[in-house]
């Protein structure tokens, strides 16, 4: 695999959802059965995006802008309607073993850990799933647990952990197999300041020490400011901005110390007016 090949490459990536609208009431349900009112909605519209290896990119946009759909296509959950999509040289929607074992996903709102058992038990399952040799498993677990300071809680059933503890355990699980590409979907949502900072520091270290490419989505602009060398802003399924934070500020005619929340809000409303 050539190392200079980009981690993610999309060309005119498009996803349209088909849905049927149903009139209320029994009459509507019956009518919908025979003459469904089919509609289409374009969630992602001819998106062009290339992410080189080793980058931390923030994918931003208001709710419903199409960023979740984009992420889902990138990690193989959704099949694109049209356009080109290559991630680590693979077509994600095929969900092949080689592809899936080189990426990883962390959902802030959804747990990948098994609820009723300890984190360590979940790690054992992933060891078999990703066929990780025992010595490497032991080393990685020790290293990740130290970095995230979870050595003492690895053996506690997940349901008894606080949200902050759980999120750090989620990261251990997600990175156990040493993925080259990590999708972090709102990894800090609902966390207190301390936990938030530790997650942020960890992601930065991960990128620096192991060269892991990270695609981050977050509504917390402080996360973005702390981590991302590049941001792509999506609205109505299109990229309306792609560049670094300084460029983002100047694009919105704001100074270097301008509040990023205000910058983003201005950008979104401008896009809506346009």
């Amino acid at each position: 695999m050539p190392r200079n090949e980009p981690a993610i490459h999309t060309e005119a990536l498009t996803k349209t959802y088909r849905y049927t609208e149903q009139q209320p009431g029994l009459a509507g349900a019956v009518k919908g059965l025979f003459r469904p009112d089919r509609r289409e909605r374009t969630a992602v519209d001819k998106l062009h995006l290339t992410v080189p290896r080793g980058q931390i990119i923030g994918l931003l946009g208001p709710n419903g802008a199409g960023k979740t759909t984009t992420i889902k296509m990138l990690c193989g959950l959704l099949r694109p309607t049209s356009g080109e999509l290559e991630v680590l040289g693979h077509r994600p929607a095929k969900r092949g073993y080689d592809f899936l074992s080189r990426i990883s996903v962390v959902f802030g709102q959804k747990s990948m850990l098994w609820w009723d058992v300890s984190t360590y038990d979940s790690l054992l399952i992933h060891r078999e799933m990703y066929a990780i040799p025992k010595p490497r498993f032991a080393n990685t677990t020790k290293d990740l647990a130290e970095r995230l300071q979870v050595q003492d809680i690895l053996n506690i059933p997940v349901r008894k952990l606080s949200l902050g503890q759980r999120m750090r355990c989620e990261l251990v699980l997600a990175l156990l197999h040493g993925p080259e590409l990590l999708f972090a979907d709102e990894p800090t949502v609902g966390l207190d300041v301390v936990a938030k900072l530790s997650v942020r520091t960890f992601l930065a270290e991960l990128n620096r020490d192991l060269g892991t490419t990270i695609v981050l989505t977050s509504h917390d602009m402080n996360d973005v400011a702390a981590l991302c060398e590049r941001v792509a802003v999506i609205n109505h399924g299109r990229t309306i901005f792609d560049g670094d934070l300084d460029a983002l500020r100047s694009r919105a005619d704001a100074g270097v110390d301008a509040d990023l929340d205000q910058v983003m809000s201005k950008l979104f409303t401008e896009a809506a007016d346009a």
Binding site: L77, Y97, L100, V105, K110, Y130
Partner: peptide, 12 residues
């Protein structure tokens, strides 16, 4: 509810 996503991103 979308819990399936957690499985689809794993090689299993």
């Amino acid at each position: 509810l979308g819990g399936l996503s957690s499985w689809l991103v794993r090689p299993c």
